[in-house]
Simulated scan of single mutants.
Amino acid sequence: MQGLLDLTAPESEARQQIGPDAWLLKGFALNDADALLAAIEQIAAQAPFRHQVTPGGYQMSAAMSSCGAYGWVTDRHGYRYSALDPQTSQPWPAMPALFAELAERAAQNAGFTHFAPEACLINRYETGARMGLHQDKDEQDFTAPIVSISLGAPITFLFGGSNRSDPTSRWLLEHGDVVVWGGVSRLYFHGVAPLAKKASHPATGAVRYNLTFRKVS
């Protein structure tokens, strides 16, 4: 089946544990990468990327869109999920079947069965864009994992602990890599370092896309 890991390969090459109940699946989405990028383009035509503003008034450096039953929104009123795109007052684009199937397979590979994502937050990183350490805690169901797919230019993923001050480990995320965390690590702080000036990939140029799948309700 496309996307499944070659479990005969050394674990250091295919499946790396980055924390308790947290895994980096190297190249897991590589076979589906072209189709994922094409789907992102279609989604962005309906729900254009935008730089959202935090409750504190800061513009986020990564541009965002969403698909699925819910989209993630931030503005002066706070962080939340919404069934409607506030930019168009229309429902978010439907989540492509490939997105949901791939996220479910990745979750299962990491030991989380029956994952059914309701939201996919799509981030677009250009040179210098970053994501500070944060917790994914706007969801109602913390028993479901987070699944994160990287496409395009490589970036450094930061994975910490349950407190913002905990030490962070650094992991290079490349085109087609997937990170899955849940269980003990579900509310661990995480983020990405700024996208380096020389970071590039033939499929996207100096751009990195990230698909983050979450069960919201």
Rank of each mutant, 00 (worst) to 15 (best):
M95D: 00
Q87S: 07
Q87V: 08
S82Y: 03
W72A: 00
D85Y: 07
M64G: 04
G111E: 10
L84K: 06
P96E: 06
Y79M: 07
G78R: 04
P93L: 01
R80D: 11
G111A: 12
E101S: 14
P91V: 10
S65H: 06
A69C: 09
G78L: 11
P96S: 10
W92F: 12
Q90N: 09
M95Q: 12
L84C: 03
W92Y: 13
L98Y: 07
Y79V: 09
H114W: 14
R76Y: 01
S89T: 10
L102D: 00
L102M: 09
A69K: 04
Q90G: 04
T74K: 13
S65D: 05
H114G: 05
A107E: 01
P86D: 02
G111L: 06
Y70I: 06
E101H: 14
A103M: 09
L98C: 08
S89W: 12
T74E: 10
T74I: 12
L102N: 00
Q90E: 15
T74Y: 09
M64V: 10
E101I: 12
H77V: 03
A110Q: 05
C67P: 01
T74A: 13
L84F: 08
P96W: 03
G71Q: 03
Y79W: 12
A110H: 02
Y79P: 04
E101T: 13
A83G: 07
E104C: 15
N109C: 12
L98W: 09
R105H: 12
Q90L: 15
S65P: 05
G71F: 01
Q108R: 15
M95L: 14
L102G: 00
A97S: 10
G68C: 12
S89R: 09
L102E: 00
T113P: 02
Y70A: 06
N109W: 07
R105S: 13
D75Q: 04
A103E: 02
E104G: 15
G71T: 01
F112K: 03
A97C: 04
S82G: 06
G71Y: 00
Y81D: 00
Q108P: 13
D75P: 02
A83W: 01
S65R: 05
L98T: 02
W92E: 14
A83P: 06
C67Q: 01
E101G: 10
H114R: 14
A100I: 08
T88F: 06
F99E: 05
E104T: 15
F99M: 11
F99G: 10
S82V: 03
T74P: 13
Q108L: 11
